[in-house]
Write a protein that binds this DNA or RNA. Structure first.
Length: 569
RNA sequence: GGGCCCGUAGUUCAGCUGGUUAGAACACGCCGCUCAUAACGGUGUAGUCGCAGGUUCGAAUCCUGCCGGGCCUACCA
């Protein structure tokens, strides 16, 4: 058995994430982690909140809290909603942890020893009334090209022009609206990424199995030439800048840039986990200490690819230490919301907590993964969601399990019946399932979620198909043993359908398997031949009554939700 | 501006390195079943594969141009 280190891109601390964030990284990572655990691999699934940066400071300000308390509160909210969504992190850490502070400082100092750090002084917009430096996009003004009045300092949303904050006409702070801005010189640490370009390129060249999206983004950056990149900021909230373990002179009021410390949190969160559980984290992250037999899989949205394929590897390689780098990388596109993006800041779309108020996690998990944005952005619409849930979960899986159980109650006293032997119908079912199982395992292995979902569904559908052909309700009068064999096979098939659905539908799978008295925890991924799998339940074993697994989503609900959340006018 | 991706049945999508009548799911029609949440099964209708050229014995598949949509472009994370 192998060892899998799985990370999901870190959700930013501000606010509970929307379904787009969930579908783009945390959820596919969870499905994969569950699959690998079921296969019996040793899995460490890591996520964390990304807590530093300007938005966190501003969020705290708005909430009337100090930044630490604000992050404490937001972290707890996110951890709770992730847990309720069934995201099975082995550890959900915080980039503001002591461990991350220490590792971030460690990396920076190592990079400096390697000659990859340089102090540079650059002009930066300073807001006198906000008493802070402003990131480019926190400066607003009139676009010099098209005259749009709310252009941001980095780009005009109206005409698309790439801007510098000083280009803006009548610039003002996006935070306070104040126009009292000035340009001040400020000194920052720059990471000389350009010196690592060849190393990174060779590494990307070798990463043949990355998805095209990831490779093309990485190559684009490399082809344009890696630039030295500022890795510190003029902020209060973040990892303090040190030199030889002491506050770095001239940097007392500065911290590391959030994008420098955030990926390091993957490692630090592992250290948090280790400290909390008494485990050892180096065997996951340092090549000589066990990392060389770890398969490291990263999940992220497409916006994050450059940081994972270029920036973070520069940090790791540049340290000169034998850190583990990503082996397999899954980059997803966006789930879109009625022609636009989900937006946390504008509260556009459905958020994880709201989703759970409407329906249990498995409904969302299924639809988001069956329609995962793998090759392109995929649209979330209420009617799609309704249709997908009703057709797949209610009609196919829920109905199949229900009719099998109910028939067993009516005719076999809710016991796995003995008697009868498989005939031609069963043999052809075995053959079909062997092929489905092979394909399904391959799709999970390749992290192709839509295909895996479609194959999972095909297994459920095979159940309804089989039942219809076997028609034990007709056979039972004339040939009781044949009916017994049919029901036994169908009961086992319901179990199998539940088992293979577990990565997508962890709650439902457990509910079904508990009712059938299946005891293995954690669940095993089926590897045996279908002929064996469909006769696993001990004959005579009782089957507990099962309530309906899924309820139909009604048109009236869709109308109501559309009105409440927008979209589908 | 530069780069990348996408445009295939009403809808969401498969179609790898070009090769018999272009596939699936959903929706829709018809038939069947009654164990089941009017769910299930069978079957059928449905596509000039964005447009225009080109290469080829042969292109949805390769090349060029155009149209339409999306994404990335380094100080939001």
């Amino acid at each position: 058995m192998g060892r899998y280190l799985i990370t999901s891109a870190l959700p930013y601390i501000n606010g509970i994430k929307h379904l787009g964030n969930l579908a783009g990284s945390m959820l596919p990572a969870d499905v994969h982690a569950r699959f690998r655990r079921m296969q019996g691999h040793e899995v460490l699934f890591i996520c964390a909140t990304d807590e530093h940066g300007t938005p966190a400071e501003l969020g705290a300000l708005e909430a009337g809290l100090d930044v630490r308390s604000y992050c404490d509160q937001q972290h707890d909210l996110q951890r709770d909603v992730c847990a309720r969504f069934g995201l099975s992190f082995d550890w959900f850490g915080r980039s503001s942890s002591r461990q991350n502070r220490e590792l971030t400082q460690h990396f920076a100092e190592r990079l400096e020893e390697a000659g990859l750090i340089e102090e540079r002084t650059t002009p930066q917009v300073y807001s006198i009334d906000d008493r802070r430096f402003l990131p480019d996009r926190y400066v607003e003004g009139t676009c010099p090209r098209c005259g749009y009045e709310s252009a941001r300092g980095d780009q005009c949303d109206n005409c698309g022009a790439l801007l510098d904050p000083v280009d803006l006409i009548r610039p003002r702070s996006k935070i306070s609206g104040s126009g009292r801005l000035e340009v001040r010189d400020t000194t920052h640490l720059f990471l000389l990424q350009d010196r690592m370009a060849e190393r990174i390129r060779a590494w990307v060249d070798a990463a043949q199995e990355w998805p095209p999206l990831a490779r093309s983004i990485a190559y684009k950056w490399l082809d344009e030439g890696l630039q030295p990149r500022a890795i510190t900021r003029d902020l209060d909230w973040g990892v303090p800048v040190t030199k030889n373990g002491r506050p770095r002179p001239g940097f007392e009021d500065k911290v590391f840039y959030v994008w420098f410390d955030a990926p390091i949190e993957y490692i630090a969160a592992t250290a948090e986990w280790a400290d909390a559980t008494g485990a050892e984290w180096r065997r996951w992250w340092l090549m000589p200490e066990g990392g060389d037999d770890v398969t490291y899989v990263q999940f992220m949205g497409k916006d994050n690819v450059a940081f994972h394929t270029v920036s973070f590897p520069v940090t790791l390689f540049g340290s000169g230490e034998p850190w583990k780098l990503v082996d397999r990388l899954k980059a997803l596109n966006w789930v879109t919301w009625y022609g636009g993006k989900f937006s946390t800041s504008e509260r556009r779309g459905v958020f994880m907590d709201q989703a759970l108020d409407l329906l249990p996690a498995d409904y969302w998990r299924w639809r988001l993964m069956a329609n995962a944005p793998e090759n392109a952005d995929s649209a979330f619409t209420w009617s799609d969601f309704q249709n997908g849930v009703n057709a797949d979960l209610v009609n196919v899986l829920g109905n199949f399990v229900n009719r099998v159980v109910r028939f067993g109650e009516a005719r076999f006293e809710s016991v796995v019946p003995d008697g009868g032997t498989p005939g031609p119908l069963e043999l052809s079912l075995f053959e079909e399932l062997d092929s489905h199982l092979r394909a399904l395992t391959e799709h999970h292995d390749a992290m192709e979620f839509r295909r895996a979902a479609a194959e999972t569904r095909a297994i459920w559908a095979a159940g309804n198909q089989y039942l219809q052909r076997a028609a034990p309700w007709s056979a039972i009068g004339a040939d009781a043993p044949a009916a017994a064999c049919s029901l036994r096979t169908a009961l086992n098939l319901a179990c199998l359908g539940a088992r293979v659905s577990a990565p997508f539908l962890p709650y439902t799978a457990r509910t079904i398997l508990d009712a059938f008295g299946v005891a293995d925890r954690p669940l095993r991924w089926p590897t045996a031949a279908a002929a064996v799998l469909l006769d696993e339940l001990p004959r005579g074993q009782p089957v507990a009554p099962l309530p309906l697994l899924f309820r139909r989503i009604e048109d009236t609900e869709i109308a109501d939700w559309s009105a409440r959340f927008g979209g589908e006018e």
